[in-house]
Design a protein around this nucleic acid. Sequence first.
DNA 1: TCCTCTGACACGTTTGAATAGT
DNA 2: AACTATTCAAACGTGTCAGAGG
Length: 444
Amino acid sequence: MAAGPDAYLQGNIRLTLEDPELWKTFCEIGTEMIITKPGRRMFPHCKINLSGLIPCAKYILLVDMVPEDGCRYKWNKEKWEVAGKAEPQPPCRTYLHPESPAPGSHWMKQSIAFLKLKLTNNTLDQHGHIILHSMHRYHPRFHIVQAEDLFSVRWSVFQTFTFPETSFTAVTAYQNTKITKLKIDHNPFAKGFRDEGTSKKRRSNKNPNLEKRSKMSDMLNRDSEEDSPADFCRSSYEGYDADEGDLPKRKEPDGVKEERYSPWAADREHSVRTESPAGADPRDMYNTEQLVPAPASYQPYRFHEYGKSPSPSSSVGSSHSGSGRSSFESRVPDVATVPDHDPSKPRTHEVGPSPCGPQPLPGPQDYTGVLNMTMSQAGKISHHIYSPYGAEQPLGQWSGPGPAQYPPPHHLTADYTTQAVHHGYHHGNVAEWSQYPLFSYSCW
DNA sequence: TCCTCTGACACGTTTGAATAGT
DNA sequence: AACTATTCAAACGTGTCAGAGG
């Protein structure tokens, strides 16, 4: 797949985010994603390109959401402010791409969209949507697992990719009118709300509030013309770092180009990646999280490279090429390996929170998912894998929708889950990985 | 009073079955 | 009879808005 020339070669697998410019546009303002009880799709969508896979080997693609930090936020007069500590994490769920598992050739031949991924704030959700807290910040992680089926995933290599520009704040109603406008402008489903749209009827009925919105919209239009993205960013997040001394520092280093991006992204890069001890565990050689090299502004925040960073020139150069795509390649050998799994090791919190890792989350974490899996360790996992095509399909009913040309996946075992959590992601961000299990739920 | 969340609503897109045409 | 193109309605995905509730 044509990853842009900005993709620097770090390994075999290259993952490219589609529409990075759109993502960045949102990110600069502070992306918000609506979460609803029945579940809401993301916009922009998570859409990626993959290359460097072994054409005949099968892979499984997964997405999950991880908190950016341990804070809750509030929208106060045109900017986000910290509003206290985060609520206990809801059950962590993982979205399995409906076509998984499929050969590398299949994944590489076209873009891979996670269109049906839905976000919800309903902690009792029965549809397998990803559960998030409103007014909290998250970012998606993309996982690529080489595995013949979901059973063999346990022995496979995880490769995880994140894109700084995809971080967002979960909300039940849009807070920033600039985001609303952007969504309306870019989401075809919201065409009816565009100014030039045909829905004058509705808009002409405006109440004072609506009028205010309209004015705001006009202002926004002007803003868009007059303000640089950096200004956008600053206007939304000013004062945000000054609120709580013990909360993650949000201020950008002076003169760093990160100013172009929202503190969401930049902050995460600081807290999660920059200071992580690299390659502390030999297993890291097989399990990595890849921070996608983004435009130059992200460079200082590049995630640890296990002591073998690509030359800055190559990465910087690539990031400037403006290919219109964020991409990243994994350096991890693209082969299935058997993790050095020691079942006697503690399952959770086996390593104390790294001082370099993300802010520890407050309060008791909800490990429902992990517990489900762990308790069923002797056999197949007992929790459900949900399918939008058959809501109540129990685990094991993986007869996939659509691409039935691929053998139906098998079961995930509990052991697999714990491995995924404690081996698949055992690297510098130990606290993060151990707190956010990968496979408490799967769905498609 | 403020903030957050919810559900009904209008409007647009997507999807798939039914029908017509070749 | 088989295939393709078109039509149409239902389902679905959006943001808006008023009101509930803490």
